[in-house]
């Protein structure tokens, strides 16, 4: 199925909960409202015509320019994205599902943005989501075991956020 057909199918099924699309880029993507993500993913996985049984990767991206001088010239509004690269073993087509999130929940710094977990649809998402949580600071609601995975459990902050400040020391170890 072509990306256009997939996008049309999703729009017919979910209406305005499909919030955006870009189909003529290198990897065509479809944006989904965070609250509808779990439902859309379940449809993508279980519908016979789509059968997206393979989740390649869950990645987070932080769009933010920490330098206030450069921020005015930045080509994007500050936000975060979670991407799901999906493909179907059966049909051989692929698509990217995107979720746009604010950098902080309710714009209150320190409150992590939330997105539903898909670990119950694809078990492989379990570790991917833990990694995104650890490095990007996005909370996956409904995840069975949301702990830090790469950083130590007592680490402060989320290193891949663009405004992350590297700590001076960690347990008496000089870090810079």
């Amino acid at each position: 199925m072509s990306p256009q057909e997939i996008a049309q199918l999703l729009k017919d099924q979910f209406g305005d909960r499909i919030t955006g699309e870009a189909l003529d880029v290198l990897d065509p993507w479809i944006a989904v409202a965070p609250e509808a993500l779990h439902e859309v993913m379940e449809f993508l996985r279980n519908d016979e015509r789509l059968a997206m049984d393979f989740l390649h990767c869950v990645s987070g991206v932080d769009y933010f320019e920490p330098d206030p001088k450069k921020a005015k010239r930045a080509k994007f509004e500050p936000h975060m994205e979670v991407l799901y690269h999906l493909s179907s073993m059966k049909h051989g087509h692929r698509i990217v599902i995107k979720v746009f999130l604010p950098r902080w929940k309710n714009d209150r710094p320190g409150e992590l943005p939330e997105v539903p977990s898909v670990a119950d649809i694809w078990p492989t998402a379990n570790w991917h989501e833990r990694e995104v949580y650890d490095l990007m600071g996005i909370r996956f609601v409904g995840h069975p075991d949301l702990r830090r995975i790469l950083c130590p459990e007592d680490w402060v902050g989320h290193p891949l956020r663009k405004d992350y400040e590297f700590p001076d020391e960690y347990h008496g170890i000089r870090a810079r």
Binding site: V25, L26, D27, C57, V61, D62, L83, H85, V96
Partner: peptide
Amino acid sequence: VEECYGAIESPNGELGFYIVADGSDVAYR
């Protein structure tokens, strides 16, 4: 200013890189 996911069949399996480019010579992600 684009993003792409490129993968090859490495000895251990699919090794993919997801790159976000912002127009400069350094990847944004």
